[in-house]
């Protein structure tokens, strides 16, 4: 397996958000996580990426046979974990190209590959940009600064393609994308799909899952995965919402 989350509990400012998550992802699998606002989806993604604001109070996460929680965020990235942020930050003064060159070369160095020189890098970058139908003027602009919501999301996927991760966590990458962009982004993901690479896709909409067909769909509710199914579960959620599930697990509060 690539990722094994066992009974993960995490809190922020003493408030418990994740209340015992269990999730196993094998190489090549695509998992989708759905769930109402505030249920802890982004928290899970942040904890996996290594954001220090969250305190892991119990449980374990194993990533490629290593204790993930023990690794610094940059090491996680170099080891092949990628998070496409729900809200990518704007970084004025740092050009997208310079940032990405530093990033890609760190990752390559870690993996024992030669860093790209300026020319090679430009070539690789241009190819990925074309695949994502992005204008190369992005490269000279400050990272995410003044990017539209959709452009920021595309930029995340562009970075994902450049960094060649083994596990990509996409936190609502589909939100804010127009229909064409959604298709392009989904195609970008599908091109990367193979027996090695895995994806954890957080979304509110079943539509994305039409393009990127998941192997499993999980429902996160109040910090717990309360149901796991296949892609049909997403369709059912789209039709029925979450209420029926909430009532299906009345014991949830009692269990705690």
């Amino acid at each position: 397996m690539i990722l094994e989350i066992k009974n993960l509990c995490a809190s922020i400012d003493e408030k418990e958000i994740l209340k015992g998550i269990n999730l196993t992802i094998n190489p090549g699998e695509v998992h989708a996580i759905m769930g109402p606002n505030g249920s802890g989806k982004s928290t899970l993604a942040s904890v996996l990426a290594g954001k220090s604001d969250y305190e892991v109070t119990s449980g374990s996460v194993t990533f490629k046979n290593q204790d993930l929680l023990d690794l610094d965020p940059e090491i996680r990235a170099r080891e092949g974990l990628f998070l496409s942020f729900q809200y990518p930050v704007e970084i004025p003064g740092v050009s997208t190209a310079n940032f990405l060159k530093a990033s890609v070369n760190e990752v390559r160095k870690h993996r024992g590959l030669e860093p790209y020189d300026a020319m090679e890098f430009l070539k690789v970058m241009k190819k990925e940009l074309e695949l994502l139908e992005m204008d190369k003027s992005f490269l000279s602009r400050s990272l995410n600064e003044g990017f539209s919501g959709g452009e920021k999301k595309r930029n995340e996927i562009f970075q994902m393609a450049m960094l060649d991760p083994v596990l990509s966590i996409l936190d609502e990458t589909d939100s804010g994308l127009d229909i064409d962009a959604l298709r392009i982004v989904a195609e970008g993901v599908n091109k990367l799909r193979n027996t090695e690479r895995s994806f954890l896709i957080i979304t509110h909409y079943q539509r994305l899952l039409d393009y990127i067909v998941p192997d499993f769909v999980h429902v996160l509710y109040q910090g717990k995965i309360i149901k796991t199914g296949t892609k049909e579960l997403a369709l059912e959620l789209e039709e029925r919402g979450y209420d029926w599930l909430k009532s299906e697990v009345p014991s949830l509060e009692e269990v705690q």
């Binding site: 996680r76 998070l83 930050v89 970084i91 990033s103």
Partner: peptide, 17 residues
């Protein structure tokens, strides 16, 4: 954190920013 999550060390991230 954004830069670190892309493989850049804290020190380099500080320098860049």
């Amino acid at each position: 954190f954004y830069l670190r999550s892309r493989g850049i060390s804290t020190k380099d991230a500080m320098s860049m920013l």
